[in-house]
Design a protein around this nucleic acid. Sequence first.
DNA 1: CTCCCGATAT
DNA 2: ATATCAGGAG
Length: 212
Amino acid sequence: MKKRTKEILDILDQQFGTEYKCYLNYETPWQLLAATMLSAQCTDARVNIVTKDLFQKYTSPGDIAAADLKELEEDIRPTGFYHNKAKNLIACMKDIHEKYHDEVPSTLEELTSLAGVGRKTANVIRGNIYHDPSVVVDTHVKRISRRLGFTTNEDPEKIEQDLMKELPKDHWILYNIQIIQFGRTICTARSPKCGECSLQKYCEEYKIKGKV
DNA sequence: CTCCCGATAT
DNA sequence: ATATCAGGAG
């Protein structure tokens, strides 16, 4: 690992801690899967509001699989993209229930074969549930990894590979968790708080623009 | 590349 | 008014 990279990771560890704390609320693996599916282009805070009621109403994958489409759409409407998300949730949970007997699969291939589950969601499950080292590239990781100069790519899969080369395996999951927190509070997309940023000297965008 | 889409911050 | 939010599929 480069010295510069270690310095950045040390600062992240110190500022955001080293606890594997997921910011989507869930009790069981299938609930994390559902919550992550709902989190596309939506704040995790809003997902948590929706899932609080959702997981009381539907208490198993089979419950979601058997749900009425229109009713489920209304249940998840505030998260946006609700037609697609409801349809995918039903199809996905039907597979979890019937094909996998209520167990969430653990391989990238099995996970991404589920409706509405792409690479990002699959890696969240692998990392948080099965503790398999995996790099999750979401909107925060993409933006901040580019600002930190860990990648110059736009494509999430290429960014994933760049990060796997850049970061030690035991920090892959932690990096994602820390960057989300960092991205929500300081290194935001629109008007980042560069004045309070502990990583300012490492920021490629700050170097160019003086302020992002 | 385009579409899906409500809620909030700027 | 518009950009953005733990993306994925056709």
